[in-house]
Write a protein that binds this DNA or RNA. Structure first.
Lengths: 166, 166
DNA sequence: CAAGATTGAATAATCAATCTTT
DNA sequence: AAAGATTGATTATTCAATCTTG
């Protein structure tokens, strides 16, 4: 079935490229995880809180977390369970569609987010963005955006629910 | 304690940069995971098999997996447990240090690896490396290498156990 | 019946403690 | 005592099944 050369495949430049991406990402997130943990949060809990904080009215439907966080529907339920237990988030009914629930960030949640953010940004700067000259950082982000848009259709900034993603 | 502006922090360019890196990486790995799963492996099992395949004599000490895979010591034990159960890897005693164990890839393991690799490389090409013009890919990899070397000291290709990492 | 959300059962990862060898 | 590896207990995540609403 396969008449290629395994030894040659093992040496392929694509393995190296993917390896660099993995190691850069995993190394970075490991450092960020330590700082996030100092504030009593897991990375995924922080991400949910961050998305809620960035959302215009501090609320998002449960479903809206799935795609961007690469968490399953039940995974979202469980993260929000923990955040709600800690009073960082509350669940609220959706008036227009009674199947849906909103997760709303609480004042306590905003306070916690505000406590984590400065150190978080500082670390991203120290280990990532400030390591590269502006032009190279800019080029890097353009390349990442290209890959991201290919691999996660419908994640490009807008990602509005109005469709018309032409 | 913190006199910054949370709303402003939430809009910071560093959040965007980290978000792009995350989404590109997670989107890519999600696609790769599907193909790997078609061959009855999890991503981490595939990675262990790949590292063994790339190692000169097809064997690596348990400890050598921890750092590069960002898996804990017990995590390594458990992945190798599963791979050994499936006869893709075997444990072998280390003559020079009886505390250590080698994980050795079996013939079955090499066959399985050979079955996954072509499709794996194809996907990396389609969704990542071939999406960018050579010069931009090259620049991207240089930037990632810079970040990787900062964030994972002692991961730069060689990473030989002989020390002398000056 | 499809979509949103949740639950129980199963799987995988971690931490702390343990065992052996250096 | 420190290093390599493993184990038990806990926690997190997923899958499949379920429930409610559209």
């Amino acid at each position: 079935l396969y008449d290629g050369d395994v030894a040659h495949d093992l040496d392929d430049a694509r393995i190296t490229a993917m390896g660099l991406l993995s190691e850069a990402y995993l190394g970075l997130t490991a450092r960020l995880a330590c700082q996030i943990a100092e504030h009593g949060l897991s990375p995924i809990e922080f991400e949910v809180l961050l998305r809620l904080g960035r959302s215009p009215d501090g609320q998002l439907r449960m479903t809206d977390f799935s795609a961007p966080t690469s968490l399953s529907a039940s995974g979202v339920t469980r993260v929000v369970d923990r955040l709600e237990r800690d009073r960082l988030v509350a669940r609220r009914a959706c008036a227009s569609d009674r199947r849906s629930l909103y997760a709303v960030i609480t004042d306590t949640g905003r306070t916690r987010l505000g406590a984590v953010l400065p150190g978080h940004l500082k670390l991203i700067g120290e280990w990532f963005t400030e390591r590269l000259p502006p032009a190279e950082l800019s080029a890097l982000l353009d390349s990442l955006r290209l890959v991201r848009n290919a691999v996660r259709p419908g994640a490009e900034a807008g990602a509005v629910r109005t469709g018309a993603t032409a």
